[in-house]
Amino acid sequence: MKMAQGSGMLITYALGSCIGICLYDQRIKLASLIHIMLPLNMEPGRKNTMKYADTGIRETLKLMESKGASRSRITAKIAGGAKMFEISGGNLGNIGQRNIESVRMHLKREGIQLLKEDVGGSVARTLLFDPATGMACVRSYGRPEMIF
């Protein structure tokens, strides 16, 4: 998880089935970028909180609040959750979709408004987030850059 206030571009590279979650408090320009890999933290002791959608979102919100952000002002933009390989048979490769559903559900549960998303499909994404403006940018291979 990376955090910045006012300036300094946040970036996470090559999101495949993983999801990048930008959390932002517009008023104080505090931004966080989480790179989660899996939908639910089922580790004993719940270490590695930032690897999972549920604990990653919860812990980051706590940290942002401790830095003066207000839960009611924080909004989210997300990208990722692709299916990198089309594999016939079995449930291999569904992890992206499960990540998307878990991230949406946990944002909702925490009362965070999801403003924009660029999820699913079969392309990897590099996600940038600008704490100065609250704008996100997605770079992919073979697709024009997307700003949202």
Partner: peptide, 27 residues
């Protein structure tokens, strides 16, 4: 073995596939 699947994309995302499938077990 399953039939092979092919993709062209960022290598970080390709390498993350086994990590995501078995990531709950190991880093």
């Amino acid at each position: 073995l399953t039939v092979p699947a092919f993709t062209v994309d960022m290598q970080g995302a390709i390498m993350a596939v086994p990590m995501a499938e078995y990531g709950g077990q190991s880093n």
